[in-house]
Design a protein around this nucleic acid. Sequence first.
DNA 1: AACTCGGGGGT
DNA 2: ACCCCAGAGTT
Length: 351
Amino acid sequence: MMKGKKGEGNWQERLLAWFDGHKRDLPWREDKPRNPYHVWISEIMLQQTRTEAVKPYFNSWMERFPNISALARAKESEVLHQWQGLGYYSRARNIHKAAMEMAETYGGRLPDRKEDILSLPGIGSYTAGAILSMAYGKREGAIDGNVLRVYARLYQVEEDILKSRGRKKIEALVNETLPDRAGDFNEALMDLGADICIPKNPRCSLCPLAEDCAAFRNGKEKELPFRTPKKPPKEEQAACGIWIKEGRVLLHKRPARGMLASMWEFPMALGETEEEARKGLEQLLAGKTEDFLWQYKHVFTHRIWHMKAYPVREGAVPEGEYRWFSPEEYREIPLAGPHARLAAFVEKIVY
DNA sequence: AACTCGGGGGT
DNA sequence: ACCCCAGAGTT
């Protein structure tokens, strides 16, 4: 094991000492001992999502669904509505499924056995480790993006940390170095990754582990961790129909699988070109459209929608999940990403 | 092993 | 304009 030149003990002890004085004050860290339900919900919300974005969602979530049984009793549409705007909506659907499973199988509680936790929908190796170590005090690692970055620098791991070779190397290092206070240790690595060992210009002058860091010693802290660049997003044209009848707009519920699953949208057709998309929309509604009134470029991580919204003149409601909504009604349902913006626009010009 | 799945803030 | 974040599930 690598030892630092100054300070007592190993780097794990130095990290924990730093954490005791610098830990972030976060809503889900308030209860002592930690509430497993709070740990679970916060960990799901934090998947691929920054803490600042999670805070308001976590607080309003706990007001709306204060415990597992309240969540298990809710309808999926209510859960999705509460999640609206956070992204990765399968997380919300999986939370709901898991809560119902806990109500049925585990007496309304979050289980504390690793196999049981891992079997729940939406909980993978990271989240299971986080729950076991933080909520139940077990000696388990929790390897997320922060931990990968910190270890890649500390031990100068040159492999792509998102591929299995690099991951396995770091998993082995975490298992070798994990101390008894695993819950605090895991959170300490995340706080270090969030405040000090940040992706771009790491603040090594403030880092309690600078003396222990191989990348810092070799001047490679800015080059690590290595990751292969992602491919550019696919661009699509999207034609949306604004069809209003007796003060209500026609909306469509997206399928239960795939992107923005089970959320509502304006009738929409995708295409390579603007004309193709618009033609698809007219075909879908068996009607005619007027010049577009609204446009918006919505950027997803792996997809870009160039959206235009056209007023619809007569037509036929397609088969499937279509319904008319007044503004009061569609404020209560989960709207699919950019369609919430379109809904706000429609409300402004029409009502 | 590669792909899918959102949205937002930092630089 | 990128980058990438307290990742998991599917193919």
